[in-house]
């Protein structure tokens, strides 16, 4: 496994996370616009902020876990390239937190 391939995999993961994050920010901005138009913080606005926070928590947690896992996986792959498959699984594993946050934000938005 070359360094270039590893960099590509890392880039794909970053792009995926940024896309999800952008979606959440977009949702939050929409909710805020709606509540501003209504002249105060409405239930819908509160729900949107809650949804954003639920997603944000998952994203931050995933980022913290992945930063350490990626470093460890890079170390393992440097010593034994055969560990790449299992390494990618380990890198992807914390994404479940992000997905849970994403699902929770949908539930909150109704």
């Amino acid at each position: 496994m070359s360094n270039r391939t590893i960099k590509r995999i890392m880039l794909a993961i970053i792009v995926f996370n940024v896309t999800l994050m952008s979606l959440a920010v977009w949702g939050l901005a929409q909710g805020a616009t709606e509540s501003a138009a209504g002249g105060g913080l409405t239930d819908a606005g509160m729900k949107t902020i809650g949804a954003g926070l639920a997603f944000l928590g998952g994203a931050v947690g995933t980022g913290m876990a992945q930063s350490r896992i990626i470093a460890a996986v890079l170390g393992a792959v440097a010593e034994d390239p055969g560990q790449l498959g299992f390494g990618i699984f380990l890198i992807a594993f914390p994404e479940t937190m992000l997905i849970l946050g994403f699902v929770m934000s949908f539930i909150l938005k109704g």
């Binding site: 930063s67 350490r68 896992i69 470093a71 460890a72 996986v73 890079l74 170390g75 393992a76 440097a78 010593e79």
Partner: peptide, 9 residues
């Protein structure tokens, strides 16, 4: 890099 990288190796 971090200790995770160093220690895994």
């Amino acid at each position: 890099m971090s200790y995770e990288y160093l220690n895994t190796r």
